[in-house]
Simulated scan of single mutants.
Amino acid sequence: MRVPRVLRAAALIAAAVLLGLLTVQGTYALWNAATTGAPGTVQAASFTVNLTGTPSGQATPMTLAGGQSASLALTTQNAVLSPGTATYANVLVGNASDAGGAFSIGVTADAPTLVNNAGGSLATYLTVNAKTGTTAADCTATTGYNTPLNATSSLTSAAVPKTGSIYMCFEVRLSSAAPAAVKGQSVNITIPLTARQL
């Protein structure tokens, strides 16, 4: 009996498809390896940033043990302002991290909150400006306070290396247009500081 030519062609095509399928199949192997390691010590690093005010000279961690932000009262150069004059204060910010390797931080002073005491209106006539310095004397120099701290402007320091520090300097200026009615009034000023790893 003779096999029709069409059947022989179909058998050859089926054989070719079967060979093609066999050649693309993958192989699987299960690999397993094990090793032992000597016991070691895991140590956490601290992200400690200290704030030192004048004249106390006492360092306070920026974040307290319970996780709350520290609050530091600053002493100004001259407590009495007259229209067109300014008073100055500063805080020394120290990078006290014990992390291994380079661990620089940047410190940012953001928009202050000014709250009038006893229902006054003095805050309306005050502006707060900032700059950075390497010494306390840089802060008492009345030039260079070119960065206003407000809703649209903040000041970020240059990189502060581990064990290094920088002065954040603040100028509070009373407008020359302040009326006599604000005489004797007082204001509480809060300036938020933020430290970030660079």
Rank of each mutant, 00 (worst) to 15 (best):
G57H: 14
V93G: 04
Q68C: 02
S46F: 02
A180N: 10
Q68M: 04
R8P: 01
A158S: 15
A14P: 05
S157A: 09
A29F: 06
V80R: 08
A136E: 12
S97I: 00
T76F: 06
A10Y: 10
P83S: 04
T75M: 13
T134F: 08
A177I: 03
Q43A: 13
F103I: 00
L126V: 05
G84S: 00
Q197E: 08
T152L: 11
T140L: 14
T85Q: 07
L81P: 00
A45G: 11
S176L: 06
P112D: 08
T85L: 06
A102D: 14
T140W: 15
R8S: 11
A111C: 06
Q185E: 15
G66K: 07
N129H: 06
A10H: 06
T147G: 04
N150K: 06
G119K: 14
T140Y: 14
G67Y: 00
N90F: 11
L7K: 09
A130R: 04
T63V: 15
A159S: 05
A11T: 10
T48W: 03
A16E: 06
L155R: 05
S69P: 14
S71Y: 07
A15S: 12
A65E: 09
V128N: 07
A10W: 11
A10N: 05
G133F: 13
T113E: 09
L19W: 08
R5I: 10
P179V: 00
L51N: 05
V128I: 14
T127R: 14
A11V: 13
V128K: 02
V187M: 04
S121Y: 02
A70T: 10
P83D: 00
T52V: 13
R173P: 01
Y125K: 01
S97L: 02
L198G: 07
A181D: 14
V6L: 07
P112C: 07
A177V: 05
P4K: 13
P61N: 00
A79H: 07
N117G: 02
V91N: 12
A70P: 15
A181P: 06
A109F: 01
W31L: 13
T52W: 03
A65N: 11
Y28H: 12
G184V: 07
L174D: 07
F103M: 12
S97N: 06
T35H: 02
T52Y: 02
Y88C: 00
G94C: 03
L7A: 11
G133N: 11
N32R: 14
A123S: 10
G53Y: 00
F47W: 02
S56L: 10
G100Y: 10
T147P: 03
Y167A: 00
N150W: 02
G144D: 10
Q197A: 08
A137M: 03
P161K: 03
T163R: 12
G119H: 12
T54I: 11
G100V: 12
A136W: 09
V3P: 10
S176T: 11
T35Y: 04
Q197T: 14
T54L: 11
A11Y: 00
I191R: 01
T36Q: 04
V6E: 09
T194F: 04
P161D: 03
A14G: 11
V17D: 03
A44F: 10
A102V: 13
A33I: 05
V80A: 13
N117K: 03
G120N: 08
Q58A: 13
F103Y: 15
A86L: 10
V80Q: 12
Y145V: 11
R8I: 15
N95D: 00
G101K: 01
A11Q: 06
G94P: 00
V17C: 08
